[in-house]
Amino acid sequence: MTQVQPAHFTSAGGIGTRLSDILWRHPRLLIALLLLPPALWLGVIYLGSLFALLAQSFFSIDHFTGLVKYEFTLSTYAQLIRPSNFDIILRTVVMAFCVSLTSAVISFPIAYFAARYARGAWRAVFYLGIMMPLWSSYLVKIYAWKLILAKEGILTWALQKLHLEWVLDAFLALPVIGGNSLSVSTAGTFIVFVYVWLPFMILPIQAALERVPPSMLEASGDLGATPAQTFRHVLLPLALPGVVAGSIFTFSLTLGDYIIPQIIGTSRLFIGQAVYQHQGIAGNIPLAAAFAMVPIAIMGLYLWAAKRMGAFDAL
């Protein structure tokens, strides 16, 4: 029998082709090569440094020498529960909660419109409108808001022209959220937080709503549900993964931010500012680490509760 070389198999090829052949024969090798760099980055550099910081929270600082004592202790965590520190945690969590809730309420109609009705050019306008604020510098936006909210700012000016200044004055006279002007009040901090994080809420809700076929809402109405009932029993449960995803952003970003409350708001601290001050100014790294642990723990609890509530069932 003679050996016949079938003409339709090409055996030629450079080093690139041979490499492709090897990867084709060993698909796992390809996956390993693709995953190795991000795995190293995430695993060693990112998570590693995070754990190195968090480990510090189990040490304490010697208040005479100002040096870190490398002995396991929970005393740093005990400091967190002191009223002055616990106030900071409580204030930040309440703020993050209010910001997330308000963002969700404002985002839902916008996202619904974008998902159901915006087509063609309108869709482009929508994405541009949502994304454009993200292109400009974070600091520029915050200082712009300072100009809007300041006592001599355009908001006060506009209300004066409308003879509605008394509304603002009455609002600023409220305890806790009020203040001398909006730019130095907790309400001002809240307004800017909501503005800055809003795109992070709109986009996931919109993505979730886009996956809800219109026939599903029609079916609900067909079966006797009023629009309010359809919202409660069909639209909201199906959009919930998006709301949860968005609120993970708004909640965690608010928990960790230290710039907005520093520029707009009162002198009362938020967690981010406390971490910044304890680490940078006071040199109390264990306490800074313990503060940094708080948002992580809260987010863990939050995700666990969201899962228990079935927020991810429709995924």
């Binding site: 029609e218 067909d222 429709a314």
Partner: peptide, 27 residues
């Protein structure tokens, strides 16, 4: 639609994915 005594079987069925069969039927 919610005030009409007619019901529809949709082309794509439009079953609610977050509800089980019994809750879909009993909706």
């Amino acid at each position: 639609p919610y005030k009409r005594n007619v019901n529809t079987v949709f082309q794509d069925y439009a079953l609610f994915p977050h509800l089980n069969v019994r809750d879909n039927v009993a909706y």
